[in-house]
Design a protein around this nucleic acid. Structure first.
Lengths: 263, 263
DNA sequence: CGAAGGCTTGATTCAGATCAATTCTTGTGG
DNA sequence: CCACAAGAATTGATCTGAATCAAGCCTTCG
């Protein structure tokens, strides 16, 4: 049991707190281990963090999915980002920082308290350089996902959004060892996807149908199989984090200004 | 001229690096002053930072507007966030951090190099606690704006998006002293707004017309007057940063789970 | 003055929302 | 093990907000 936990924590943290395949060292991982709190279970659709809460109780997600949300007055819901197993919610190494948005579980969830790790990193960060670096990569990751989210919902079609998000999920799960080849478990309802994608649940359903008809994906009992990841990536303009953009410099700007005179 | 610059820098930095009205101290501000690089001018629609660039050349915007963008293969453009006078672009206190997105000028721009300040904060942060704190608030701000952006384009109607964004601009300019009562200069083309709002330029134009017809705003020669900020805020679900959400807890979740059994 | 970019407006189309059933799953208690 | 209740998923019909296409019309500004 202890050994099992150990292996798991290393895998998860190596994947999630690392960026671009760089793993947490064995040492860092075991430091982590010694400061993990007990496992805790949460029901689906429960608020883990309220908007405005002080971020002093970070939690590592061991299993299940969560997200951050913003509500509009009339009940419309926007999911800002998703948290997958291995992700950390409510984390900040700054004192008194508050949550800019609420965090809720989307499925049944198992989490572990990370307050101990947080304390370590706040009190003597220089003693844990690789944990500190991992935190930094984690923050960069999160910003990357937020920017992707904006691009998806701002400028992409329904089928592009879905393809793009599925590719993101696949890549993230792969890094924590939770995918099997080109398939993975997707425990979200179509409504939860819709609220992240800026679409209606009905349209998510229809777009799934379209992607299935085109032989791009297969869906069965909560699992997704990407039948043609390259084509999907192509049609969703998907890029792995770190993968450089094609530099069509002129296209980025109004054509007129591609050359032009002084300011 | 020197005195003028001094005053300006204090005002701008006090506003922008501070959060919720807390100003940079006179001391911090003057430290800053002594480490500002020379003024530099940039034409409109010029790339200041490429995606992937190392973030070692932060710049303070003295005048003009900029933004971060993501391009899709076919030329669609999504503006991720806007930078206003007083904002800082390309800033990171971490070594070797790279830009997750390109940054371009939207108007003619005047900026000042902040590499000196960055060096200070990386080498001896503890000597400049209020600058360090200001950086933290700046990061929080930026995340707040990204989350607002997601909510706007994900779940709001065109008129809500525009109202919301105008209110955000007004609040941000007010903090740097660049608004006059309920009016402010908006030097963006409707296309630049459209690319941030996930709309077409034509529809932005029509929605402006609608808001004018409803006597909610007035537009003239690049300036915006908010005729009824409270009503605008109401209909756009706009909240000032820090203002708590109404806690309609049940509405945030599927109705069914408002009470319910064990996990 | 002239040209270019930006703004405005009309006409038309279309992607996606909404409304309304129906069916499929899944978990539950008897 | 079965019946059933509650969500989910699916599908059809219809509506609509916003995109697109296409002109004109203002403003700058060199």
């Amino acid at each position: 049991m202890k050994a099992d936990l150990d292996r798991y924590a290393h895998a998860v943290f190596g994947g999630v707190l690392s960026f671009g395949g760089a793993d947490l060292s064995r040492a860092g991982s075991s430091v982590l281990m010694r400061h993990l709190g007990p496992l805790q279970t949460h029901r689906p659709n429960v608020r883990l963090i309220q908007e405005g809460d002080v971020l002093d109780k970070p939690r590592l997600i061991r299993s299940g999915w969560a997200c951050r949300i913003k509500m509009l007055r009339d009940g419309r819901r926007q999911i800002l980002n998703y948290y997958l197993p291995g992700d950390v919610v409510g984390f900040s190494t700054e004192a008194n920082q508050t949550a800019p948005a609420a965090c809720v579980s989307l499925t049944r969830l198992m989490t572990m308290d990370l307050s101990g790790v947080r304390k370590l990193l706040m009190d003597r960060p220089q003693e844990f350089p690789d944990l500190t670096a991992a935190c930094r990569r984690m923050r960069m990751q999160e910003e990357h996902y937020l920017l992707s989210q904006i691009t998806r919902i701002g400028r992409q079609k329904a089928y592009e959004r879905i393809a793009h998000l599925l590719l993101e999920f696949h890549a993230r799960l792969k890094r924590t060892g939770l995918s099997e080849g080109e398939s993975f478990q997707l425990p979200l309802t179509q409504e939860a996807l819709a609220d992240g994608l800026g679409l209606s649940a009905v349209h998510v359903n229809r777009t799934f149908k379209l992607l299935k008809r085109k032989n791009l994906i297969r869906l069965e009992r909560g699992s997704v199989l990407l039948l043609d990841p390259d084509l999907l990536a192509e049609l969703a303009s998907y890029r792995e984090p770190g993968e450089p953009a094609e530099t069509r410099d002129s296209a980025a700007l109004s054509p007129v200004y591609a050359q032009s005179a002084r300011a």
